[in-house]
Amino acid sequence: MFLNKRLDTNAWNYSISPTNFYALNGKVATQAQAERMIQEHFYNPQEFWGDYIMPSIARNDPGYTGRDYWKGAIWAPMNFLVYLGFRNYDLPKARKDLARKSSDLLLKNWESKGQVLENYHAETGEYPGYRSEYFYHWGALLGMINMIEYGFMPPTEQQLQLIQ
């Protein structure tokens, strides 16, 4: 896994979070490394895999609560950035699983309460209890993942080529 590094102290951060997958956006991992990250971390129920994914910190981290801002709440922008990294590698199952679970999370709240949350409780998939808006624009990124994966909108890499 690619670790995060604090720029103010140059210390490595050994806590595992979705940001550790962001290295895939820069294409710095080999295909074998990406596959290992997926098998050992993404599909690990002690870390990220579960009914609702991806918590903002691994489930087995001592600070994990499943609902607090950076202690396990699920944030749509994090899922979206992880998904974009997956697109750089031959990871079709992981891409589809992340797309499906992200869409399911969005629809769970939209269909039952008309909410697109700022962040979500990692265990219940619902409002985390506090410090979250009930209708927040970036929550829609959970649905965009599915729309890109299944061809309902052009992938971001194609959109960037059009801009150039």
Rank of each mutant, 00 (worst) to 15 (best):
L3M: 06
K5F: 07
N10I: 03
N10G: 08
A11K: 15
S15K: 11
I16F: 13
N20D: 11
N20H: 05
F21H: 02
F21W: 00
F21L: 07
N25L: 14
N25K: 08
N25H: 01
G26A: 13
G26C: 05
G26S: 11
K27G: 06
Q31I: 08
Q31C: 07
A34L: 05
E35F: 02
E35S: 11
E35A: 11
M37T: 02
P45L: 10
P45G: 09
Q46R: 14
Q46C: 02
E47K: 14
F48G: 06
Y52N: 13
Y52H: 15
M54N: 03
S56T: 09
R59D: 08
N60I: 05
G63T: 11
G63W: 00
Y64N: 06
T65C: 10
T65S: 14
D68E: 15
Y69V: 06
W70G: 09
G72Q: 07
A73E: 01
I74P: 01
W75F: 06
W75K: 03
W75H: 08
P77Q: 07
N79K: 12
Y83W: 14
Y83M: 03
L84N: 10
L84K: 08
G85M: 03
G85P: 04
Y89M: 03
Y89T: 06
P92H: 04
A94E: 08
K96M: 05
K96C: 05
L98G: 10
A99Q: 07
K101D: 04
S102N: 03
L106I: 03
L107N: 05
N109P: 04
W110V: 15
W110F: 14
E111G: 00
S112Y: 04
K113Q: 14
K113H: 14
V116G: 09
L117V: 07
Y120T: 01
H121Y: 05
H121M: 01
T124P: 12
T124N: 09
G125L: 01
E126F: 00
E126L: 13
G129D: 06
Y130P: 00
E133F: 09
E133D: 07
E133C: 13
Y134G: 13
Y136C: 05
W138A: 02
W138K: 01
L141S: 10
L141W: 02
L142A: 02
M144W: 08
Y150D: 07
F152I: 02
M153L: 11
M153W: 00
P155M: 06
P155S: 09
P155D: 13
T156I: 15
Q161G: 01
Q164T: 12
